[in-house]
Design a protein around this nucleic acid. Structure first.
Length: 552
RNA sequence: UCCCCGAUGGUGUAAUGGUAACACACCGGUUUUUGGUGCCGUUAUUCCAGGUUCGAGUCCUGGUCGGGGAACCA
C-alpha cells in the first residue's frame, strides 16, 4: 500500500506529535471576520483546519474575529455558521468570539503598559505614518514614546471610559522603530471607535487591532496549530512577540497559500460590490463563488471537499483551473445523482404508428452507475417532446442524431426512423414525424436495427413545465482582478445567465425536492432553485454541464 | 532601496541526497441504450550559473523572476 504523501503542515504536525509537543493535543481554529459571506477560498481553509485536526485526533474551534464593528453583523455570523456546517464540519472545540475576550485583551494591554512595552500616542495617523520610515529606512520615535508608565495607565483608562475622542489617541506597542519588518515599528494595538458592536453593543469604545487580538485569542483557547494564509507571514513575528511579552501559551502560526481560481474573484470587498450594485442576485447567486452560491447552484459538500483535497496545501501561490472544481462536482454527481429526462428547447416528435391516446409506461434506471438506486416508470405515447438541436436537415456522417433518413433510439423506449418534418414560415423545424421500429423496445430489442444515437424525450401528455436557468462563468477573462485594481465590473460576462422558459420535464420532476441534484440525461446536473422555485412555477438551476465529447 | 516567502509538465501537488511520480487538462483508442461514465494509452516537467558529493529537484553561494510587507482593516 502506497502511503499518501503528506503536505508540509501534516509533516509538521507529525513531527510535533513525535516529539510529544503539547502532549499530543491538536487544536486548530477557523477564524473568519463576520463581514461577508464565505467563499470557495474559505472552503479550502476550512477543509485544511478542520480536516487536519480530525485527521490527527484533534478538534477545531470556530471563532468569529469581530474586532472591527464597522463592517461586521449578525447576518454574516449566521451565514458563516450555516456554511461551515453545510460543508460537513462541526466545531467540536466550541464557538467563540474575539469580542468575548475584550476584557482579557484589555488586561493584556494593561500588562504591556505596566511592563513598559506599550504607550499612548496622541499623534494623528499622518504624523505616525511619517515616523514609520520606509523599507530600508528606519523610523523615528514618537514624542510620546517615553511617557511614564503611570501616565500611560491613566490615559488608557480614560480611553476605555470614553474620555477621548475618536482619532485623538491610540495605544501602541513599544517595540523597535528601526525593525526590518515594518509591522514591528511600534504597531497600533488599540483604537477608539464609538460604534455599536453587534455583540457587545456600546460596552466598549476601544477595540483591539487584529495583531493584538489574534495570537492572544489563539493562546487563550490553547490553539496548538494556528493555520492561516501566506499574507500573514509578515505578522508572525508580531504574533510571537505578544505571546512572549505576555508570557502566555505559545500557539504556533503556520501559513499556507490561499486558493485562487481563474475566471473568479475572491475578494470579499469585490464580491460585496457585485451584490451592492446588483450585478448578481445576492450573495447566493448561483454564479457567485460563495459557499451559499455554490449550494444554490447545485454543488455538493462532498464535491467541494474533494476539490479542496485535490488542490493540495503548499506555500507557493497558485491559480487553480475552475475546471477542476467542475470535475469534482461531476465526479461526485455521476455516482450519486438520479437521472431524469428533460427537454430544454422542445419541439414535437410525433410517432406516427403509435395510436393517439395510447400511453405505455416504460421502466428506466434511476442511475445506471448505481444498481441500488432502483428504477421508475416513464410514460410513452404518440406525441413527445424532443430537443430542437437533436434534429437537423443537413448533416454529415458524424451526426448521430435525428435527420432525414436517420434512425435513432429514444432512451429507454424504442428505435424510431425518420418519416418527415414540418417547418414554420421562418424555416424553423416545429415537428418531426417518425415511425417506431417493430420489436425495438428497450431491453427486449430483437429488431436487429442499429441506432447510433440515443435521444432523451418527454411525453407531451404527462410533461411538467419549468423554467431552467443555465449559468456560465461570471467573468470573461481568466484573471478578472488582473494586475491592478482592475475594472472587474467591466469584465462581466453578459451571457453568464440564460433563462429558458417552457422547458418540458418528465413528471417525476414535478416533486423534486430542494437539495436533490439530478442528472438531466445528456444535458448536465440540475437542481431546484431554493429561492424562486414554486410548485406551480418550477425553476431549475444547471450546476454544471456534462462533459461534451462531441466535436461535430 | 530593506525584510519575509516562493520557483518541478498546460494547471496543481509529490519525490525529505539514490530510476522525477500522481491528479486534472489535452490527444488517441476501446466500451456504452447518456457523443456521459468506465477502461487503456500518448504527449509534456526540475528558473539560471557556479560549488559540495560516487550521486543534487533536494544541500551551499550568487543571480533572475514571481508574491507579500508602511492602514486607528482582517
Amino acid at each position: 500500500m502506497a502511503k499518501k504523501p503528506l503536505n508540509f503542515i501534516e509533516q509538521k504536525i507529525e513531527a510535533d506529535l513525535a516529539s510529544g509537543k503539547n502532549n499530543g493535543r491538536i487544536l486548530t481554529r477557523f477564524p473568519p471576520e463576520p463581514n461577508g459571506y464565505l467563499h470557495i477560498g474559505h472552503a479550502k481553509a476550512i477543509c485544511v483546519s478542520f480536516g487536519l485536526a480530525s485527521k490527527y485526533g484533534g478538534i477545531t474551534n470556530l471563532r468569529f474575529d469581530d474586532t472591527n464593528p464597522e463592517k461586521e453583523s449578525v447576518e454574516y455570523v449566521d451565514a458563516i455558521r450555516r456554511d461551515v456546517s453545510w460543508l460537513g464540519f462541526e466545531w467540536k472545540g466550541g464557538e467563540y468570539y474575539t469580542s468575548d475576550y475584550f476584557g482579557q485583551l484589555y488586561a493584556f494591554a494593561q500588562q504591556l503598559i505596566a511592563q513598559g512595552q506599550a504607550y499612548i500616542d496622541d499623534q494623528s495617523p499622518e504624523e505616525m505614518a511619517a515616523q514609520k520610515g520606509a523599507p530600508g529606512v528606519s523610523g523615528t520615535a514618537s514624542p510620546f514614546r517615553d511617557r511614564s508608565i503611570e501616565e500611560n495607565q491613566r490615559l488608557f483608562e480614560e480611553m476605555k471610559e470614553g474620555k477621548h475622542a475618536e482619532g485623538t489617541c491610540v495605544l501602541r506597542a513599544r517595540i523597535d522603530m528601526a525593525h526590518d519588518n515594518m509591522l514591528l515599528r511600534d504597531p497600533v494595538i488599540y483604537r477608539i471607535k464609538f460604534i455599536e458592536h453587534h455583540r457587545t453593543g456600546s460596552e466598549w469604545v476601544i477595540y483591539p487591532m487584529y495583531d493584538f487580538a489574534h495570537g492572544q485569542s489563539d493562546s487563550m483557547e490553547g490553539i496548538t496549530h494556528s493555520l492561516c494564509s501566506l499574507e500573514f507571514e509578515n505578522h508572525r513575528p508580531l504574533y510571537n512577540w505578544f505571546i512572549e511579552a505576555l508570557g502566555i501559551f505559545p500557539s504556533e502560526q503556520t501559513e499556507f497559500a490561499r486558493l485562487n481560481l481563474n475566471y473568479t474573484i475572491m475578494s470579499k470587498r469585490k464580491l460585496l460590490r457585485l451584490v451592492e450594485e446588483n450585478a448578481v442576485d445576492g450573495w447566493d447567486d448561483p454564479r457567485m463563488p460563495t459557499i451559499s452560491g455554490l449550494r444554490r447552484r447545485g454543488y455538493t459538500p462532498e464535491a467541494i471537499r474533494e476539490f479542496a483535497e485535490r488542490v493540495g496545501v503548499a506555500k507557493r501561490n497558485n491559480t487553480i483551473d475552475v475546471g477542476l472544481l467542475e470535475w469534482a462536482l461531476r465526479d461526485d454527481l455521476n455516482r450519486r445523482a438520479p437521472r431524469a429526462m428533460a427537454v430544454l428547447n422542445p419541439i414535437k416528435l410525433i410517432v406516427l404508428n403509435v395510436a393517439e391516446g395510447e400511453v405505455e409506461w416504460l421502466q428506466t434506471d434511476n442511475n445506471p452507475e448505481d444498481p441500488e438506486a432502483g428504477s421508475r416508470e416513464l410514460p410513452f405515447g404518440r406525441e413527445l417532446w424532443m430537443e430542437a438541436e437533436d434534429f437537423r436537415v443537413d448533416v454529415n456522417k458524424k451526426w448521430f442524431r435525428l435527420a432525414p433518413g436517420r434512425t435513432v433510439r429514444l432512451k429507454s423506449a424504442y428505435i424510431v426512423e425518420y418519416v418527415n418534418h414540418k417547418e414554420d414560415e421562418n424555416g424553423q423545424v416545429t415537428e418531426v414525424h417518425v415511425n417506431r421500429v417493430a420489436n425495438s423496445k428497450s431491453g427486449e430489442d430483437t429488431s436487429g436495427v442499429k441506432a447510433k444515437g440515443t435521444l432523451h424525450w418527454v411525453a407531451t401528455s404527462h410533461a411538467v413545465e419549468a423554467e431552467v436557468r443555465l449559468y456560465d462563468r461570471l467573468f470573461l477573462s481568466e484573471d478578472p482582478e488582473g494586475g491592478e485594481d482592475a475594472n472587474f465590473m467591466n469584465n462581466l460576462n453578459p451571457e453568464s445567465l440564460q433563462v429558458l422558459s417552457g422547458c418540458q420535464l418528465e413528471p417525476s420532476l414535478g416533486e423534486a425536492p430542494v437539495g436533490t441534484v439530478y442528472q438531466f440525461t445528456r444535458l448536465g446536473y440540475f437542481t431546484v432553485d431554493s429561492k424562486y422555485s414554486k410548485p406551480e412555477n418550477l425553476v431549475f438551476n444547471r450546476a454544471v454541464t456534462l462533459k461534451d465529447g462531441w466535436k461535430g
